[in-house]
Design a binder for these strands. Sequence first.
RNA 1: GACCCCGUCGUCUAGCCUGGUCCAGGACAAGAGCUUUUCAAGCUCUCGACACGGGUUCAAAUCCCGUCGGGGUCGCCA
Length: 436
Amino acid sequence: MIRVRFAPSPTGNLHIGGGRTALFNWLYAQSKNGQFILRIEDTDLSRSKKEYIDEILNSLRWLGFEWDEIYYQSQRFDIYKEYAQKVLKEDKAYIEKSESGKEAIIFKVIPQKIKIIDLIHGEIEFDTLVIKDQVLIKSDGTPTYNFACVVDDALTKITHIIRGDDHISNTPKQILLYQALGFPLPEFAHLPLIMAKEGGRMSKRKGATAITEYRQMGYLPQALVNFLMLLGWSPGENREIIDIKEAIKLFDIKTVNKTAAVMDMDKLDWINNQYLKSEDPQSLTDAVIPMLIEKKYIDKDNFDRDYILSLIKLFQPRLTVLNDFVDWADFFFLKNITIDPAAEQKFLAQDLSKEFKLFIDRLGKLDKFDIAAIEASFRELVAELNIQAKALIHPIRVALTGKTIGPGLFEVIYYLGKEQTKERLMKWVKQRRGSP
RNA sequence: GACCCCGUCGUCUAGCCUGGUCCAGGACAAGAGCUUUUCAAGCUCUCGACACGGGUUCAAAUCCCGUCGGGGUCGCCA
């Protein structure tokens, strides 16, 4: 049975790189019908926080990676001490006293050549001559990372260690410990790191790092997962948008790239748009309702879900992130809309009182107020006035929505309703009359 | 600095293992156009890469060596 693990440290949010490491572990487990184990590396008591654990777990669930087992290193200190004692008894380690009299257990590193066969990189050779003796148990009684990691991986029967490239140099140290403890060696696969556009590691200064940030920005988990998957792996046949089930079938850890990849937000945006377009409008509606409530665009206890669903359909193909909907469809929910000054200058500087008035009259006379009828009556009007359709469409859109961009005008009018349309257009008619 | 990893269009990649079918394919971005009611979407086209230098070979993006460049690690952090 294949067993892999993802071992985050709760000293911060789930990082985008961590998300990808989790993804590849999870993918590998799924593809091999194995198990995905979670291990919380909270040995640093002062830096580990409960809220980070919650946040990491939530992010993993949001991405869709359920785990089969979970362990907390802070609950296993006795185990580490026991194994450290064993190493000590066998004279493979020694005790070092600090000035304050506290004792640490230090592992003796014996010079030798260590060769690992990495599933992604192939052979990597190290000379332990350059490695110093390793602390196993710190003087405060807590285990060090490499020691706890080895003990847990061995005890929880992890067969494949899939982790970031930055752990390559830890590998020989850990192998030494496996040997000293008499544990069988797992397989190793080191994933290339994700780099920031500016070069170097992803950090707060270089774009969004936490998975939750992407969630808040309105990216769909499937889209983020698809994007992360493509960073360092390709399903072949020039495929880009790929369903997770399909990916599980095609995934092979050995075909993962060796090269670090740069995080490209443009591509993420494109992928998110692709998913948004094909997503069920019903679920997008559900996703967007809390956002609308938060913005106070709708009342938590009294809103028309079907209406929101209709609006979602209107905007769906043009959304990059879900939040775009909240920004772009605001005029449907607000009584007093804000007109973009540049748009006003461009389309409403001229006096269109006559045209607006005529259009309002026509709308009033419509016996069936639907999209087709609205458009037909509008077309008749511009034909009568002998002007181009767009000469009137753009000003009306700005008057109605405050924006120059948006869905088709006749849909907008239909969903805005006869009264609101009239009201918003009349504002410009009156304003004109009042001014010299 | 030492050790380790990596190096195909601006970016993500296919090809590399098993040299010829690659004057290197796809996608994002950029640019142009079509469509059109704006934006988005869609469609068409354009721009654009084997880091460099040596080998090996009839033949190299593919194999070998070196250089350069990028990244990572050197904690009683994880």
